[in-house]
Design a protein around this nucleic acid. Structure first.
Lengths: 194, 194
DNA sequence: GAGCATATCTTGGCAGCGACAAGATTGCGT
DNA sequence: ACGCAATCTTGTCGCTGCCAAGATATGCTC
């Protein structure tokens, strides 16, 4: 009796009798969104990718919005981790934000499309709060001259990195923005310190 | 014989025998996206709203992506108009950008979701170029001290207003950002000039 | 270690959707 | 007045999300 297809190399968070279908479906969703965007996502396609029947996903996530809710929560946790790593340097925190958006495009697109999932879900709210704390942690170490209005400065910093990331992902930037998003982002963010 | 429902008060661009279904469908799309977001858009629902059969939209737009392509082109034209009005004041151009996003949420969401439509469509490209020119026109009038690197400054300005607008529309901003997007945006954009 | 409750997954079905094909209707130009 | 082309309708197919009901495996209890 061979292992089911979706159990290959999966680290089971909670060991279920067939592996961890929940995790396999989330991974398949990231893959599918990376190929065709969140709008084209299909639960039946995810089931096929995971090698299970078309109704299996419903048991883990309820419905499509439930799956995307779990993906958004996972995304906010990944973002919190990515933002807490560079520490107190606001420039590097901003670059980390853009890098997160590029490296985890699927998560990022879902996270900021609240019409696709249940943004008021408790797990999402908790993970979002963690990411928000990490974001504010980076902004807290602003140069003194800009500390006059910290809430305003935090919003400006968030806006500029979020806007750059969004425009980059949308392919809206002109070619002269370059090919390396990190370099271009660093260049843009520096504008806040001059 | 009464006029068909969708012909009420429609200024016909090209007078077809039943009014201007094309325009009626685009208006219905704006309405539907405003209610449920672009992902939930359904051509059959638009047809019902316009009072025509389910296959009528296909003749004007080919497919769903065709309709959203037309909507994106219309959006870029509206944006170009909105950006050319405030003239040379970069602050007011930025506020106009945010106001456009809030007032034309449906257009804005589609425009920057290139997976939903054909971003390389000639009409879209032309309208996008017009909007880009209007955007650069606003940035050209930057205060002298910031004119060292105009391409970088333009990208920074675009990023900050686009990011603020996106975060506002996503409902991602904390409550202390206030209720009036224009006022909050003005406050944030001013950060670029200090 | 046998039975049972439960979580997990499958099968089957329904309504709505996008897209296509083919036919009906209307308006316009000549 | 006639014919043509643009416009719209009807019908159909495969796909999707969701629901209901049944099958299967797991782990717990004794």
């Amino acid at each position: 009796m061979s292992l089911p297809r979706y159990a290959r190399g999966v680290t089971t968070m909670r060991g279920y009798h067939h592996g961890d279908l929940r995790r396999a479906l989330l991974a398949a969703a990231v893959e599918a969104i990376g190929e065709s965007g969140p709008a084209a996502l299909s639960l039946r396609d995810l089931a096929r990718r995971a090698g299970v029947s078309h109704a299996a996903p419903a048991h883990h996530f309820g419905d499509k919005a439930g799956l995307l809710t779990a993906l958004a929560a996972e995304g906010y946790d990944l973002l919190a981790e990515a933002l807490s790593r560079p520490g107190d340097d606001l420039l590097e925190s901003g670059v980390a934000y853009v890098r997160f958006a590029v490296d985890h495009r699927a998560h990022f697109e879902v996270m900021f499309s609240p019409g696709l999932y249940r943004a008021d879900d408790p797990e999402v709210a908790a993970a979002r709060a963690r990411a928000g704390a990490a974001l504010r942690g980076g902004v807290a170490a602003l140069p003194a001259r800009a500390a006059a209005e910290p809430a305003r400065d935090a919003l400006a910093a968030w806006s500029i990195v979020h806007g750059f990331a969004t425009l980059w992902l949308a392919g809206a930037l002109p070619p002269d923005a370059g090919r390396d998003p990190e370099q271009a982002a660093r260049n843009v963010i520096r504008r806040l310190f001059e």
